[in-house]
């Protein structure tokens, strides 16, 4: 009789570990958006003026200046509740992709780059900001992949 043995890799993670890694990534994303939303609301006029200087979106600056922090807060709420973390991560990736596209378009077509960033991010150049965003998108995708394998994230 043939027996099948499963050889476990030294680097394989238990479900519990994966769950906490996914949760840690959600916390990071939550922290990023919470601080960003707070800063945009606390210095709302600065944020609005910065947006209004951007030729592509300047006309809609007044709406975008409210829409962005509200969207960030909603995503924070989704990431905060364990049962909605999956949709929260998808929303996080979507919004971060839009932000990254915005940064990319600014780098390509705008000579003078405004900055309405916060915390450590204000120390970054726009190109570094692009990599920073890409890193967070990759982290969120990794969390979704890790959670999906064992359905650690609730649907």
């Amino acid at each position: 009789m043939e027996s099948i043995t499963h050889k476990q890799s030294a680097f394989s993670l238990t479900d519990k570990t994966k769950e906490w890694i996914v949760f840690g990534i959600c916390l990071l994303c939550l922290a990023l958006f919470a601080s960003a939303a707070y800063q945009k609301l606390a210095d709302h006029e600065i944020f609005y003026k910065g947006l209004s200087k951007v030729s592509l979106i300047g006309g809609a600056a007044i709406y975008i200046a409210w829409l962005v922090p509200i969207a960030e807060m909603l995503i924070c709420l989704l990431l905060l509740i364990p049962t909605t973390q999956k949709i929260g991560l998808y929303s996080f990736i979507s919004l971060m992709t839009i932000f990254t596209g915005y940064i990319l378009s600014m780098l390509l077509w705008t000579e003078k780059l405004p900055c309405h960033c916060n915390l450590i991010i204000e120390k970054l150049s726009w190109a570094e900001h692009l990599w920073f965003n890409a890193g967070f998108i990759a982290l969120a995708v990794f969390a979704l992949w890790l959670g999906k394998a064992k359905e650690l994230i609730k649907k």
Binding site: Q39, L80, N118
Partner: peptide
Amino acid sequence: NIKKIALSLMVVGLVVGFSAFTS
């Protein structure tokens, strides 16, 4: 889940508090 929510709220509080301090 309650522990996770509490931890998340603590992180939000810390981040917002730190942002308020730096602004």
